[in-house]
Design a protein around this nucleic acid. Structure first.
Length: 562
RNA sequence: CGGGGAGUGGCGCAGUCUGGUAGCGCACCCGGCUGGGGGCCGGGCGGUCGCAGGUUCAAAUCCUGUCUCCCCGACCA
């Protein structure tokens, strides 16, 4: 029985004063969630229904690819994390028990699941396997934000594949990719999968599943047939117009001109004709001068990948002797290796760059002729760059899932091996795969909300339909609505019945705020003609249904909804 | 971690500058009207003003400390 008069659905006219994101405002206003502390949220009954519907879709698709559901604890011994090397992660919540033993609250479960597999899997005959669970994750986030979009505690489906070799891993990865496609389609989201960074922990490849929305934290570069996180995106740069070439670099006096804009203006050149130098200290390599076009920016993730190591910006005292003072650094004559961005052409002269001494720049510079360099794609793409001839656009998106080829990153430190046909111990190849149900729900709110409130995809809505009755208790309308409620339930619809003694405006406003895909209204006026109103939430179009056979007609209509 | 902002009834806010014992709207409770878009009238309940200390005859208001929350950035294995 889900009569609103006996339910807990605390709707609010006004959003929390400090909320910014649409999903944050609406999910609170609609009575789905309430905040406990920073990044800590309670799901109220209707909100938890949504969460469970997402979970169920995930569960079905994981089972369909042979996933075996288990449940691992949130609380784990620190020992496992010390072995994997993840004990040092700042986001990891660490605590001690009464005996003083170190414990950890899991932020994912690679250590735990690998620990088990190490002892449970003995033979190649035990492989491959897919294990998953849907469990609380704890992360000491630097900055939780935007309601459910980034929280410190959240539920995640994480699955792990265990295979005997890379080929097996690729197959498990592919299975997950297809399962994820189905999951996000079934959830009714607009989504795409993008290439992503494998991160500092290494890995053999990864994709992220992104749901575009204004509150998204990631920027994604998109073109027909191309989608990548801007952290790793590559594209053809827009051409740049260069000043006249010269036989050799020519020094120009540029007192006090240290910014790209100032130098470009003084030289009557476009910013793209400048070579911007960014000195960094690369781990194990020392000073490297990274050079990009003046209209481009260095991408830290791509740079770290290109260097093959972590790096940090060099301090003035670390680079001044080799390349001159800040603002006048350039690649010509630099006493350090030069890493030249791929977007800088080396078949033309005419570039402008710092002269490695105060108050001077060079013009007429040509890479290769005037300085040696190493090539790498290290810039951040910008809107208008092209991929396959198509200009890219960049839009914000929220990450709702990821898939990651781990390789032997965990099986090695945790000793997860199997015996092959020849009796030799071999490392198990692993993959890990995450999905956040709460983020899926929040992304759906972001993507489909309108000025009246939430508009759930049919598969995620807390209820299939909301039945609104107008009129005082004891009236014919009430009797008709009570009957229809039972018929709808018998027909298989999950119905929220607004049987409160409240005015029509309030009931309609609440129903549209909550966002169930179908609203059925019984009121005196239409009841007199033996009819009722059916409103489709997405688009808010109304139609009239005969009361006779209304349940069957409503189910039929409901089946056609998005 | 850096920058900015905010804590006053369930929610949204005023009052703080200029100290005098807390107010508005919504919600809630009671009664009545209304009954297809948050309707109307009347009557009510509800707040140690985040917390601690200090100044003062007197503190929501001034001072010190502290906690919490939000936004931007950094970070995000």
């Amino acid at each position: 029985m889900t009569r609103l008069s006996a339910y807990l659905l605390p709707t609010e006219k006004e959003a929390p004063a400090d909320a910014e994101a649409i999903s944050h405002k609406l999910m609170v206003r609609a009575g789905l969630i309430r905040q406990v502390g920073t990044g800590m949220w309670t799901f109220l009954p209707a909100g938890w229904r949504v969460h469970r519907r997402v979970e169920q879709i995930i569960r079905e698709e994981m089972d369909a690819i042979g996933g075996l559901e288990i449940l691992m604890p949130v609380l784990t011994p620190a020992e496992l994390w010390k072995r994997s090397g993840r004990y040092a992660i700042d986001e990891l919540f660490k605590l001690k028990d009464r005996k003083g033993a170190d414990l950890v609250l899991s932020l994912t479960n690679e250590e735990t699941v690998t620990f088990h597999v190490a002892s449970l899997v003995r033979s190649y005959r035990d492989l491959p396997r897919i294990l998953y669970h849907i469990q609380t994750k704890e992360r000491d986030e630097a900055r939780p934000r935007a309601g459910l979009l980034r929280t410190r505690e959240f539920i995640m489906k994480d699955s792990y594949t265990f295979d005997r070799d890379l080929e097996g891993l690729e197959a498990g990865y592919e299975k997950h990719a297809r399962a994820y496609d189905r999951i996000f389609d079934r959830c009714g989201l607009e989504w795409y999968s993008v290439e992503s960074d494998v991160g500092a922990m290494g890995g053999l490849g990864a994709h992220e599943y992104m749901a575009p929305c204004a509150a998204g934290e990631n920027d994604v570069a998109l073109a027909p047939g191309y989608a990548a996180n801007v952290e790793v995106a590559s594209a053809e740069a827009q051409p740049v117009e260069l000043p006249p070439e010269r036989d050799a670099p020519e020094e120009v006096h540029t007192p006090g001109l240290t910014t790209v804009a100032q130098v470009a203006a003084a030289m009557e050149a476009s910013p793209g004709a400048l070579l911007k130098a960014y000195p960094v200290i690369a781990e194990g390599r020392g000073l490297v001068v990274v050079v990009v076009r003046g209209d481009h920016r260095v991408n830290d993730v791509k740079l770290a990948n290109a260097l093959g190591t972590s790096f940090r910006p060099a301090r003035e005292e670390e680079f001044a002797d080799a390349v001159g003072p800040a603002g006048f650094i350039g690649p010509v004559g630099a006493q350090a290796p030069v890493l030249l961005d791929a977007a800088v052409p080396d078949d033309r002269g005419g570039f402008v760059c710092g002269a490695n001494k105060p108050d001077a720049h060079l013009r007429g510079v040509q890479p290769g002729r005037d300085f040696q360099f190493e090539r790498a794609d290290v810039r951040t793409v910008v809107a208008g760059d092209t991929v396959g001839g198509h200009p890219i656009r960049i839009e914000p998106a929220i990450e709702v899932g990821n898939i990651f080829k781990l390789g032997t990153r965990y099986s090695e430190p945790l000793g997860a091996t199997y015996l092959d046909e020849t009796g030799q111990a071999q490392l198990i190849w692993m993959g890990s795969y995450g999905i956040g149900p709460a983020r899926i729900a929040a992304a759906a709110v972001e993507q489909y909300a309108d000025e009246k409130g939430i508009s759930w995809p049919r598969s995620l809505a807390p209820f299939d339909a909301e039945l609104v009755v107008l009129g005082k208790p004891g009236t014919d309308e009430r009797a008709a609505a009570d009957r229809l409620y039972e018929e709808l339930r018998a027909a298989g619809l999950d119905v929220l019945y607004d049987d409160r003694d409240a005015g029509p405006g309030e009931k309609f406003a609440d129903a549209e705020l909550l966002g169930c895909p179908l609203r059925l209204t019984i009121g005196r006026r239409m009841l007199a003609g033996g009819e009722l109103e059916a409103q489709v939430r997405r688009g808010r179009e109304s139609r009239t249904l005969p009361l006779d056979g209304a349940a069957a007609a409503a189910v039929e209509l409901w089946r056609t909804l998005p």
